[in-house]
Computed example of a mutant assay.
Amino acid sequence: MMTAALRLTGIDMHYGYVRALTGIDFHVQPGEVVGLLGDNGAGKSTLLKIMSGAHRPSGGTVEVHGRKVELHEPSDAARAGVQMVYQDLALVDAQDIATNLNIGREILRRGPLGWLGFVDHKAMRRRSEAELDRLGVRTAPMTRPVEMLSGGQRQVVALARSAIRVAGAGQGVLLLDEPTAALGYEQTKQVEALIRRMAAEGVAIVLVTHNLPLCHEVADRVVILNRGVKVADVRLDETENDHIVGWITGARPSQFVTRQEIS
């Protein structure tokens, strides 16, 4: 059996007396796209923050490629090969595309200028173009500032930046938080194509979205939360849209016996 790229077991999250998550088991395989669904307040954003290292769970374990990890902060997740693309994209608007793609891995000039920290912008543009070509991504010229891009182009740049850092069969996990929010039809199609291309390269992808058509376009499986409890974990080709909506709203019974029912 293939080792999961990311596995969470028995995840609990408490805020004082409030239980945000109870006994959540979750996994995603290399090259798989899993939609993480639920209504507002279901706990999906909290679970995503635990995966990304932004929150530490009250209980449970996290494994990346079969190795137990302690994610105390987002940098721990990044070192383990888990990248998060936030809704606000975290791009530097005044900088160009190449600079945004290379934040944290800048290429320095050779010789004394490099020792002084001078960046080789031409080399970064060449590397960025090659990496985007490999991903099959077409955006604006590398020298264009991000603030001059459309919403779809900005989303593609943010996705590509994270994809570059986790690229390689089975080498990384990409967490996407509402990647098509506020995008038009054509821009959404751009993002869908990039998600499919990254999955084909072996990247494991967790997709949090309210957009069920997007989920049906790109996801292999969905995990559904309701009031902090996992109520469904099913392949999309083995279920119906009405069932998914029923689990999200609570109209359909959970697939699982919950801890509260046992007690």
Rank of each mutant, 00 (worst) to 15 (best):
A80Q: 13
I107V: 13
G53Y: 08
G53S: 12
T61Q: 05
H65V: 06
S58C: 08
R105M: 04
R56Y: 06
G53T: 09
L71N: 10
G104D: 02
L89Q: 06
R79P: 12
D88A: 06
V85W: 00
R105G: 07
M51G: 08
G53L: 11
E63W: 02
S58T: 09
Q87P: 02
V82T: 04
L91R: 14
V64Q: 08
S52F: 00
H55D: 05
A80H: 04
Q83G: 03
N102F: 15
D96W: 00
S52H: 06
L89H: 07
G81S: 09
A98P: 05
R67A: 12
D76P: 07
V82P: 01
D88H: 13
L48F: 02
H65K: 06
Q95C: 04
N100Y: 11
L108K: 10
G104L: 07
P74W: 11
R56S: 08
P57W: 09
V62C: 03
D76C: 10
D96F: 04
A90V: 08
I97E: 03
D93W: 08
V82E: 00
V69D: 10
E63G: 01
D88S: 12
A98K: 01
V82Y: 01
A54H: 09
G60H: 00
A90P: 04
A98N: 01
Q87T: 02
M51I: 08
A98T: 04
I103Q: 12
G81M: 03
A80P: 06
A80G: 05
E63P: 00
Q95N: 05
T99D: 12
A77I: 00
K68P: 03
I103T: 12
V85M: 02
H55K: 11
S58P: 03
A90I: 03
S52L: 04
I50V: 15
V69C: 10
G66I: 02
R67W: 06
A78E: 15
T99L: 09
A94L: 13
S58H: 05
G66F: 03
E73N: 15
Q83A: 13
K68Y: 00
S75R: 14
A94Q: 11
I97V: 15
E73F: 12
H55N: 15
L91P: 13
H72E: 11
L91C: 14
I107G: 09
T99V: 10
V69T: 08
N102M: 15
G59C: 04
G60V: 02
P74S: 07
M51T: 05
G60L: 04
Y86R: 04
A94S: 15
A54S: 07
I50N: 10
D88F: 03
P57N: 11
E70F: 05
V82M: 03
G104K: 01
T99F: 10
H65E: 07
T61L: 00
L71Q: 11
K68C: 05
Q95S: 08
A77D: 07
L89G: 02
A54W: 08
R79F: 11
I107P: 10
P57D: 14
L101V: 15
H55Q: 08
E63K: 06
L101K: 14
K68F: 00
G59I: 12
A90F: 08
D93L: 13
L101H: 15
A77G: 09
Q83P: 04
L91F: 15
